[in-house]
Each structure stands twice: as structure tokens, then as C-alpha cells.
């Protein structure tokens, strides 16, 4: 069962079928800059390659704007800005379109903007560990767990804190 640990999308997909569900967890993976991220598959509603983003002035910095997903208007959150990646950690040219990972609860999902969509990976539960004390350039508040793959670290994000609005308590109502 070692081969699951590689992060090549194509193979990951093949293995998905073979895996027994009880001792593995499935993650939707994606890239942003040099980092490799994952979200538990249950937290992801769908993947959408490119949606038009309407910028919202005066919005919190991590909000890139709003997108229209079949009539439902979602807040688009830039993953890099949200988790505190500094500009040197990712080099996304301005023109490049980011992809949308639609996630969160179905009442009010959000669109998480990522640079590149990876694959769905099945990972044995015993390979998953709590995050280290520090991951360079990332606010650990948003990291739930990590998984050491052969070549790199899969950072499993905490969808709750990602979608949680911060300024709501003092300014809402």
C-alpha cells in the first residue's frame, strides 16, 4: 500500500477504486505555488475550472470577489491570501485563471480559488498526522492535518476555518 503515497494524479485515481474505504480517507488535492493541499472529499461540493470573478470593493483582502455558480452567488476566497502565503511563495501571473473548489456547507458554500486542481487521493489513515509546529508561510489555523508523501508534504486544510467569516462577530448585525 505504499504506492498511494505518490502524488501523481493519474495513478491516484486508479488506486481510488482499489482502496478499501474503512482505513483510508479521500482528499481532493490542489496546488498553490510550491505547496500541495488537500481537502477531505466530503467538504468539497464540486470543482469548477473557471468562473468569472466579480471583484467586491471594500471586501476583506482574502476575498477575491463573488462568482455565479448556476444562479447561486458565492464568495470567492483566494487560498493563498487566506492562509497567509506571501507573494514569494507563489508566482501566479496575474492573467492566469484560478480554479474554483466549491466547498463548505450547502446552505452557503464558498469558492476556494486555487492555482491548479490535483487529483482525488486515497490515503491510509495511519499516514495522516497532526501538523508540525510550523509550516513556512502558512497560518496553522487553517491546517487540520498533514500527510508526508514521498516527495512532498500534503497539507490537509481545515474547511471550517477556511469558510468561517472573521469579521462577522463585531460587524454583523
Amino acid at each position: 500500500m505504499v504506492q498511494e503515497n505518490n502524488n501523481l494524479p493519474v495513478e491516484g485515481e486508479k488506486n481510488l477504486v482499489e482502496m478499501s474505504i474503512s482505513d483510508t480517507s479521500q482528499f481532493v488535492t490542489f496546488h498553490y505555488g510550491k505547496h500541495f493541499f488537500g481537502l477531505p472529499i466530503d467538504d468539497v461540493i464540486e470543482i469548477n475550472k473557471a468562473l468569472d470573478i466579480t471583484p467586491v470593493p471594500m471586501a476583506p483582502e482574502y476575498v477575491s470577489g463573488v462568482v455565479n455558480l448556476r444562479g447561486q452567488i458565492l464568495t470567492a476566497i483566494d487560498l493563498a491570501k487566506r492562509i497567509g502565503l506571501s507573494a514569494k511563495d507563489f508566482k501566479v501571473s496575474e492573467k492566469k485563471e484560478l480554479h474554483n473548489v466549491i466547498m463548505g456547507n450547502r446552505e452557503e458554500p464558498v469558492s476556494l480559488l486555487v492555482e491548479e486542481i490535483g487529483d482525488v487521493m486515497s490515503i491510509p489513515k495511519d499516514k495522516i498526522s497532526p501538523p508540525p509546529d510550523m509550516i513556512e508561510g502558512i497560518n496553522l489555523k487553517y491546517v487540520d492535518q498533514v500527510c508526508k508523501l514521498e516527495s512532498r508534504l500534503l497539507i490537509i486544510l481545515d474547511s471550517k476555518s477556511l469558510e468561517q467569516a472573521e469579521n462577522n462577530k463585531n460587524q454583523g448585525n
Binding site: 468569472d52 467586491v56 476583506p60 463573488v66 452567488i73 464568495t75 476566497i77 467569516a165 462577522n168
Partner: peptide, 23 residues
């Protein structure tokens, strides 16, 4: 309505979809 991240912005009352599908 605007999502919870954006609700607090006083200058916006909500969003709407235009004929071309943009927000």
C-alpha cells in the same frame, strides 16, 4: 444576498445576476 464574508460591508445591499450571467 451576499455571503457571510461580505455581509458587513455597508455600501452593498446584495448581489444580482446580469443578463450575461455575470454578477
Amino acid at each position: 444576498p451576499l455571503g457571510s464574508h461580505l455581509k458587513h460591508i455597508p455600501i452593498f445591499a446584495g448581489t444580482t445576476l446580469m443578463g450575461d450571467g455575470k454578477v
